[in-house]
Amino acid sequence: MTAPPTVRIIAGHTGSGKTEVAVSLALHLAAAGRRVALADLDVVNSSFRSRERAALMEARGIRIISSSPGHGAAIDLPAISAEVRGPLHDPAVDVILDVGGDNVGARALTTLTQDIVQRGYDLLLVVNAYRPDTNTVDGVVGHLHAIELTTGLRFTGLISNTHAIQATTAQDVLNGCDLTRQVSELTGLPVQYVTATPVVLRDLPADLPGERLPLGLFMRDEWM
């Protein structure tokens, strides 16, 4: 049975790849025929923002919401667009909220807490075992608790997203899955998604927990 549309909040430490996950998830849902809106709520970081790929997503029918007029990368307003409340109150739309990289960035969610709780949500933590601040169980759980304390929302699941960019191997992904599994066992949170490029996904064992999410490298230009 196809799950009903919901709000998915994508959070993770700076450099975890959360924006890449958010964009890939939006494209994945849209390809399945879902109505999708993605809101760039990252008011902390000035680069690698989901709005930078607005043209790509809008061409696939995805509604993009940001604090920047025309989604321009060089123009930013330190505020959350009220436009995001429209999709939040439309039960026929899958909403993806891409938030800042730490508890300070996640504070932007507090202006939408009532709308989010009323609609129902999944708050998903992106776990990348190759980032120095989240390469241990204690590091991941500490980050998780800081975001919960700031936002008043509770995490509902985990996303395993360990990678080495273009050089990622199946073993890299498995290394990250092991850390994510340990966090899952400690917190009771399920592994919602395991991400990797389509080529690497085919090499993963079938018994890994979590839905496979094909990951694009949309946020990195070819020279990166």
Rank of each mutant, 00 (worst) to 15 (best):
E83Q: 13
L213T: 10
F155E: 10
L208P: 06
T19L: 02
N103Q: 15
L38W: 09
N135R: 13
I159M: 01
Q171D: 15
G176I: 07
A37R: 01
E185L: 14
Q114C: 10
L158E: 05
P87F: 09
L144I: 02
K18S: 00
T111W: 07
G139K: 08
T197V: 13
S184M: 04
G142E: 02
D122P: 03
T110K: 05
A37P: 02
V7C: 09
F218D: 15
A82Y: 10
V43N: 13
P190A: 03
I64D: 07
P78F: 12
L144S: 05
N175I: 04
T136Q: 06
A26M: 00
L153M: 14
G72W: 05
A59H: 06
C177V: 14
E222R: 08
T110E: 13
T136F: 00
T150V: 14
T168D: 09
N135M: 08
V44S: 06
A73R: 06
L88Q: 12
L88R: 12
A164D: 15
D172K: 07
W223E: 15
A74W: 07
L56A: 11
V173D: 02
L88C: 08
E222A: 14
T151F: 04
D102T: 07
S160L: 10
L97F: 07
D90T: 05
V173E: 09
L213K: 01
L213Q: 10
G210C: 07
V43L: 15
G139M: 12
F48R: 12
Q166L: 13
D115I: 09
T134K: 05
P4H: 14
N103T: 09
G188W: 04
I64W: 07
A164V: 11
G188V: 09
V44K: 07
T110G: 05
S160A: 15
I96D: 06
H13K: 14
S50Q: 09
T150A: 15
S160E: 12
L201I: 11
L123K: 00
E185K: 13
I10D: 11
L149P: 00
D133M: 13
D221S: 14
G176Y: 02
D115N: 12
E58M: 11
